[in-house]
Amino acid sequence: MDDEPLVRDYLGRLESAAWPLAAARRTELVGEVREHIDAALTEAGRADEVTVRNVLERLGPPEEIVAAESEGEAPPQSRTSSSWGAIEIIAVLLLTVGAVFIPFVGPFVGLVFVWASTRWTLPEKLIASAIVIGLLLLPILAILGVGPPQPGCACG
C-alpha cells in the first residue's frame, strides 16, 4: 500500500516535518506511521481514496505527530550544541595544536580528555588512542635507537 499517492504524500510531509528529530528517530517514526496506516487499511478491508483519506485524517496532520514526538525529547537546539563541550574542544586542541607545540605530551594529555568525554563512544576512543599511540611509537622507537642498523655502521 506504499504506492498509494495519498499515503506517500502524507509520509513525505511527515518526513519533512520531522527534520528537527534525530535521523534515526525520524526514520523510525515514519516507519511506525507507515505500519499504522497499513494496519488501519487492512482492518478497513479496502484501500480506496475515501478510506485512505479517513485513515490519514484520523492520524492528524504530520506536524502534530512530530510536535507530540518532540515533546518527549530534548529541544533540537540543545542537542546540537551538546555535541561539543569544553572537554571535546580541549581534547581536539591538544591533539592538533598541542601535538605541534608540546610534542608527545600534548597528544597524550589530549587522549586523557578524549577518555574523559562522554560524547565519544568506546570504539571511537579506542581507535583514536590506537592512532596516536601507533603513530607516536615510531618516532619514540627511532629516538631510542631501535631499528635497522645504518649502512656503514661499525657497531657490534
Binding site: L94, R119, I127, P139
Partner: peptide, 30 residues
C-alpha cells in the same frame, strides 16, 4: 629514521586522531 620523518609523525599522530574524532561527532549529529 630521518629527523624530518620523526618531526612529521609527531604532530601527524594527534592531527589524524583529532580528524577521526571530529568526523565521528559530526556524523552523529546528522
Amino acid at each position: 629514521m630521518d629527523v624530518a620523518i620523526v618531526a612529521f609523525l609527531i604532530p601527524l599522530a594527534g592531527i589524524a586522531a583529532a580528524i577521526f574524532l571530529v568526523i565521528a561527532l559530526v556524523r552523529r549529529r546528522r
